[in-house]
Design a protein around this nucleic acid. Structure first.
Lengths: 349, 349
DNA sequence: GTGAAAGCGCTAACAC
DNA sequence: GTGTTAGCGCTTTCAC
């Protein structure tokens, strides 16, 4: 087994610097620096020779030195509450795709649904003089909000659409989306829809509010058909929450689930109980993960635009960086109800 | 809508530096630096006053300056082929958990299953003088491998267990795991197991090899029961690949799927066809995502230790950083066959 | 269009 | 234990 060679220094001596490139070409470091960052400022001839030297010497810029000298890093900080939750994984995927071949890089902080962790991470991120900051949600502590307002870089809030953005905002109304889902259940003829929710972070809470609002407007009493837990969401949890729901409120004939994992679990649980999905029991999820359309029977859900949110958020940072005069934007990405067999009363099964 | 305030400088003037803290306490910058990084080198009295000053002034270290001066950043680079694939999301979750309250941070590069993107990202990452590097797989280009060998930091290969590690390695044998799964199908009495695979990256390929090996050892001809595609895996794809499989090889009575998404899709497809899962048709997935146990019927899979892999990889980097004399380690995390109803021939459905 | 000088905020190396 | 001196590799500012 080979020995380690990173005791210190190591290949650090052979690091190729701007000065090396400059010497090779016979010009000054600043010109090389310009040739790389703003080619239009350097004559074509020089530019070409510099490009060649960069190539042959294998020069790679030192981001630390760049950041220190320019007082700006090329890191775009992203604060999300979870990395495993596929909702955020999709957002990340959009971010990574868009950051792709730009000179910027994405650094993700996992707040674990904890506002204080978020505050701490915000402090650290801002200490890096980030090029931009993308944060999930609108429920930051007042300290966090104050820091973000003075961050000195574009700040994009994602996942929500609401009043009082810190800077730019890209998302949708969780309440409206949930209300639409519930209205769909009612329109399909279900008489006693219930709600199943896990984690119950602020976004889940807003979805619950949308559910309540729809029932209220339809003059349907809620009864005991709201089953929630702070436990993280899992498919397996769907079935157990369904058990609780049907025990407490046997009249329930449909359920709006906080997210798709729960909905899938509810469907498995309902099948185990021998319920006819659709005809006897309606199921609606939230987010429209790919599995929903593929399930048997296919499960109704509310489609949300997660990758798009990531892409647009990153692009918004880039746009703001390009043009510092650019005004903040607030974008509603909306949602789309995907009605499928699981809420079709004609579906026997 | 508020005006932007990040035109440049902004709050940069009020940045609290080591010098500010030193002045406040009446000592030198280096002492403050030491008080923070190696408290045992500073007298208790001073240390306490410095801590207070740091707090009241709100000092946050500048990672760029640290990296530049020490020629080492506190960034641990992670190169994975996908962020949405929940397999890697789980690994990431383990990484983030472990990096948690350390002074290090994780930076993820998405290679998109492309060796050249991986090479490019490796070059950029190494240019950051990372504290450590965690890379998925063993199929790097020779250029990439050469760079990693000279990276001057701990390098951990994850997701595989094989010969010739670059430095440390943590994973398991995909071939052995797949062989075990296939042997299970055979032991359960299925006579003509097939293979369904998507993406077909090197790890999938090794799993296919394990499948072949098991059939060969059991003297079962493979026939046309290998259905693969380079398309990325989706649940929906499972059903279509099942269609292809049963068309080409109607004798098939069980299937080993490259991953759990496909297995779930196969199950939905089989249900749609009215096949009795288990009794008539066996299904085995790979990775044992949470949904597999929750499905109805529950689906057999091969459990892999993804979060653990992330945690251990990060910990290995930290250990190597603590003790540069530490020798590289190679760890086999193994796998575990989770036999469930979907491969139980007694299961009617 | 190009360059010289200065310094970003921190730490390594060597004093004391 | 603590301080001094020199940078790290780059960009800013201001000259030319």
């Amino acid at each position: 087994m080979k020995r380690k060679l990173f005791e210190r220094g190591g290949q650090d001596k052979d690091r190729v610097t701007l000065a090396d490139v400059a010497a090779h070409v016979g010009t000054s470091t600043i010109t090389v620096s310009r040739a790389i960052r703003r080619p239009e400022m350097v004559s074509e001839a020089l530019r070409k020779r510099i490009a060649e030297a960069v190539d042959t010497l294998g020069y790679v810029p030192d981001p630390a030195a760049q950041a220190l000298a320019s007082r700006r890093s090329r890191v775009i900080g992203v604060l999300i509450p979870s990395v495993t939750n596929s909702v955020f994984a999709d957002v990340l995927s959009g971010l990574y795709d868009t950051v792709g071949k730009t000179a910027y890089s994405v650094q993700v902080g996992n707040t674990r649904y904890d506002p204080l962790t978020e505050e701490e991470l915000t402090r650290v991120f801002i200490g890096q003089r980030p090029a931009g900051l993308i944060v999930a949600g609108i429920d930051q502590t007042s300290n966090t909000k104050a820091m973000l307002e003075r961050a000195g870089c574009p700040v994009i809030q994602i996942m929500e659409f609401a009043d009082g953005p810190i800077d730019s905002m890209i998302g949708f109304s969780h309440r409206d989306a949930a209300r639409a889902a519930t209205e769909h259940l009612i329109a399909q003829g279900y008489k006693a829809p219930g709600f199943i929710g896990a984690r119950m972070d602020p976004r889940s809470q807003r979805r619950l509010n949308g559910f309540r609002q729809a029932l209220q407007e339809a003059d349907i009493p809620i009864g005991c058909r709201e089953i929630t837990t702070v436990d993280p969401s899992r498919v397996g949890l769907g079935a157990s929450l369904l058990d609780t729901l049907l025990e407490r409120a046997p009249e329930t004939d449909a359920v709006f689930c906080n997210n798709d994992d729960l909905a899938l679990g509810v469907q498995f649980g309902a099948q185990r109980r021998g319920l006819k999905i659709g005809a006897e029991f309606g199921i609606c999820g939230f987010n429209d993960l790919e599995v929903m359309a593929a399930a048997y029977p296919a499960i109704t859900s509310v489609r949300t635009f997660r990758r798009e949110m990531g892409m647009l958020a990153l692009q918004t940072v880039l746009d703001n960086l390009d043009d510092p005069e650019k005004q903040p934007t607030v974008t509603d990405l909306g949602y789309e109800l995907m009605a499928r067999a699981s809420t079709d009363r004609q579906t026997g099964r």
